[in-house]
């Protein structure tokens, strides 16, 4: 029991976190781009990509919300040991992890305020798979158009309508990651 919490961290934290952040930054700067993200070995059901993202960005100053099946002792213990991030409900979180269906509804998360839009939460959505197909995306970071298999359309369109307020999303599946910031325009159905 204890051992799953203590293992699976970065082997060389500064270098591994630097490489992981480069992938994380690249996907956030280029919505729809899918990158490989590895380094951490979190306990199930957290994916490697989501676990690596957690070790790269979380610490004592980032309240975390775990939704659905991710809110289990193994994952909690692992995040606590490796990052020290406090757990909280969705209304006070900086980061939330979960399946799309478990993270809904989006209404409860902080979206920032007009003077500090950066205080909007970041949601990490665990996906069965990531493919560069499906919903067409455009906006900053995208030359002409990009595509990503988003779990929904209307919710992301509504989120983008609130710009510059809103939520930012990462999508993770096994060791792959993609992102959808609030600035991206999501094509109508």
């Amino acid at each position: 029991m204890q051992s799953t919490a203590l293992t699976g961290g970065f082997a060389k934290a500064p270098q591994d976190a630097a490489r992981a952040f480069r992938a994380v930054m690249n996907v956030m700067a280029r919505p729809g781009l899918i990158e490989t993200l590895t380094g951490a070995k979190p306990p199930a059901p957290l994916s490697d990509a989501a676990g690596t993202l957690a070790l790269t960005l979380l610490d004592g100053s980032t309240p975390v919300h775990l939704a659905g099946a991710l809110d289990c002792k193994d994952v909690r213990d692992w995040i606590t040991f490796h990052t020290g991030a406090p757990f909280t409900g969705r209304e006070h979180c900086a980061f939330a992890f979960g399946l799309w269906s478990d993270l809904l509804p989006l209404a409860g998360y902080p979206i920032g305020n007009p003077e500090y839009p950066d205080r909007g939460a970041t949601l990490v959505v665990e996906m069965p798979a990531l493919t560069a197909s499906g919903v067409t995306l455009s906006g900053p970071g995208i030359k002409d158009a990009a595509a990503l298999n988003l779990p929904d359309r209307a919710a992301f369109r509504a989120n983008a309508m609130q710009f510059p307020l809103g939520l930012d999303f990462f999508f993770t599946s096994e060791n792959r990651i993609a992102a959808l910031p609030r600035s991206t325009k999501v094509e109508a159905a």
Binding site: D118, F163, P164
Partner: peptide, 9 residues
Amino acid sequence: LKGLAVPGY
């Protein structure tokens, strides 16, 4: 990351 999500802010 927040800077990239809200360009120019």
